[in-house]
Amino acid sequence: MLPVINLGPLSLPLPEFSLLIGFVAGSALAERNSKRIWKDSAFLEKLLWTSLLAGLIGARISFFVRNPSAFSGNYLSLISINPNLLDLPGGYLIAAVASIYLISRSETPLLIILDCLTPFLGLMAGAVHISHFASGTGFGSPTELPWGIFLWGEVRHPVQLYYLLGSILVLVLVLFLLSKDTYAQGFIFFRFSLLTGLYLLFLSRFQENGIVFPGGFRVDQIFYWLCILISLTFLNYYLLPKELENSHDDRR
């Protein structure tokens, strides 16, 4: 693990820094790749940054609402840059509301927007795995394999690196598909979610911590399986049966 990078007097928190880099690079990648299929690709960057800002503000407000007495006599903390003063579920909710509002006001079909967002999602997935590796969270189960890493008292699967490799492979495939001329709207996104669900479902077995249902069933694996089910349903029943057509004329 490497939680900080010391650059002279500066200490950069690598987990948070990798997420920031992933966001910036992901939004640039998504906008660049979407220009071929969507004339209003600038909306993509607006959507992402507005959602991020709304999410951060929402997370701070949500934290305050849940812990008002903690700020008693210390209201200056409301504008603290400390990221631990954020309520993530509240932030995600506000970001989702902001996104839905912006998308509803756009005339572009949702499936096209999802296709264009896919490179961003792929790059952010990799950034999250790097963040986990840097902070030592989401660590692997014990192993005797030669490539195991010593972490938290045992030699463990470098599962964060397994995930990172999976996300890179999926991202490369997504970018390849985006370079093709013909595919149905939503095909890229649901193919991405299918492949992502598959590698996460497979590799999560080698991750140690996590929430389990009674009986030892991993909650994360069930969630990934449901994502696979939904993706397969859309791909098989709504997208693949359609005649593959040149989508340039339809999108522009």
């Binding site: 479902l201 077995r205 996590g210 030892g216 069933f217 991993r218 069930i222 399986w225 397969l232």
Partner: peptide
């Protein structure tokens, strides 16, 4: 794919 996924989830519970 879905059935294999369920089998994988079932087998993973032994190592959770």
């Amino acid at each position: 794919i879905l059935v294999l996924g369920l089998v994988w989830i079932w087998s993973s519970r032994l190592t959770a």
